[in-house]
Design a protein around this nucleic acid. Sequence first.
DNA 1: CAAATTTTGTGAAAGGAGTCACAAAATTGA
DNA 2: TCAATTTTGTGACTCCTTTCACAAAATTTG
Lengths: 213, 213
Amino acid sequence: MKYQKIPEATIRRLSRYSRCLEVMEQAGEEVVSSAQLANRCMVNAAQVRKDLAYFGEFGIRGVGYYVKDLFNDIKKILGSNKEWRMAVIGIGNLGSALLSYKDFLKQNYKIVAAFDIDPPQVIGRVSEKLGKPVEVLHINRLKEVAKERRIEIGLITTPPSEAQAVADLLVEAEVRGILNFAPTQIVVPEGFVAKDVFFTTILDNLAYLLSNN
Amino acid sequence: MKYQKIPEATIRRLSRYSRCLEVMEQAGEEVVSSAQLANRCMVNAAQVRKDLAYFGEFGIRGVGYYVKDLFNDIKKILGSNKEWRMAVIGIGNLGSALLSYKDFLKQNYKIVAAFDIDPPQVIGRVSEKLGKPVEVLHINRLKEVAKERRIEIGLITTPPSEAQAVADLLVEAEVRGILNFAPTQIVVPEGFVAKDVFFTTILDNLAYLLSNN
DNA sequence: CAAATTTTGTGAAAGGAGTCACAAAATTGA
DNA sequence: TCAATTTTGTGACTCCTTTCACAAAATTTG
C-alpha cells in the first residue's frame, strides 16, 4: 500500500459501497464478491477492486469479501466510523429541515448545535426530533459553544450574502469542516475543508439532460 | 461545431460560469476574458475556452466575451433559459423546506405542485412563500395534475422506502426529470433522467477529507 | 497603416481514471 | 493430494479530461 493520490471519485464510490454493505449486513449476507457489489452499485467489478486496492487488501481470493469486515474497513477509511458533531448556522427553512432530518442523516452525523442571527422567534426555539433537543442560539456564541461541544463540521444555511462571513466565524472557531448550502462559493484557509452544495448546479444539470435527449 | 460527447464536468462548470456571469452582469461589467472568468470560478483559462468550444465560438479574439451575450448563450446551452415546472413529492421537513426555498432556487425553476400520501394535517396545506401559493395534494392525483400543470421535473423527498414507487408514478405520469433526495438509488427507463442527491455521500466525503489532512 | 498587444480557438502533450486480462491465492471436490 | 474452480489484486491498455502552447484574429498605439 504505497502512497498515491486517491481520486475523489473513489471516495464517492466507497461511500456508495458502504451504503450497500450496510443493507447486505442487515440482510444477514456474510460474503460478497466484487462482481456482486459492483452490480448493486452499478459499477465495474474491477473498479471495486481498484478502489479498495488504494487502501490495502481486504478480500480473499476464491472467496470474496466478508461483508461485516469490509463494511467496517470502509467506514474506517472514510472516517465515518467515528461520531461527527455538527452545527447548523442559519435556521431558516433549510436549516430547520436539516435539524429534523433524521431519516436522511446517518447515525454517526449528529447535529449538536444550531445558530441564527437574532430573529427572536427563532432564538431559544428547540428542535427535539433528533434524539436530544437542540436549542437555537445566537450566532455570537458560536466560538464559545463550538469549543464546548467539540463541533467539527458546520452546515451553512444562511442567505448567500452571509455565507462567507459565517465561514470566517467557523474558521475562527476552528471548526475544520464546512458544508455550504448557500449559492455562493466559500473560501477557507489551508487546513480547513469546505464543500459547496449547489442546488442550482444540480438542477441546471438535469435541465441540460432533459433539453438534449 | 461538429458533434462530440460533452463531459458532465463541462456542464457543471458551465453552470458555475453562468452563476459568475450573472453576478458580473448585475455589477454592470460588459466584457470578460477567459482568464478573468477562470479566476473567479477557480479553474484554468484554457478550460473555460475548451468548455465553450464544445458549443461554438462565443468570444472575440483580442477582446474577450460580452458578459450579457455569453450569459444568454450559456443559459441557452444548459436549457436554463426556459421555465422549468416542478413538483415536490413528500411534504416532510425537506419537502417543506424546498417549497419555501426562494433564496436558493433560481427564478426559472418553479415549484407548481406538491404531493403527499394522506397525512391529513398536510393535505390541503398551502405554501405561499414562493409567489403563487401551492396546495399540497394527495399523491393519487399526481398523474392528472402533472399533465394539467405541465410538470417536467419531480423532486422526491419521501422516505427511502417509498422513493422508487414515487419514481415509478412520475414515469407513468411522463415527468421526464427526477431529482431524488431519498438515500436510495432510483432507476428509471430510457428517455427519463434521474439524479440522486446523497446527502450522506457528501458528508462522508467531508469526513474523509477531515480525517486525512 | 503597420507594428505591438491582447486574447481567442484549438491541435498536441500530459495526466488521470476506468477497463481488461491474467497470474496468484484460496477453496472445493474427486 | 491434486486438478478444477472461483475470485482477488494488479500491470498494461484504453479512453477521457485537462493543460500547454501557439497561430489566428481583433484591437490599440504611434
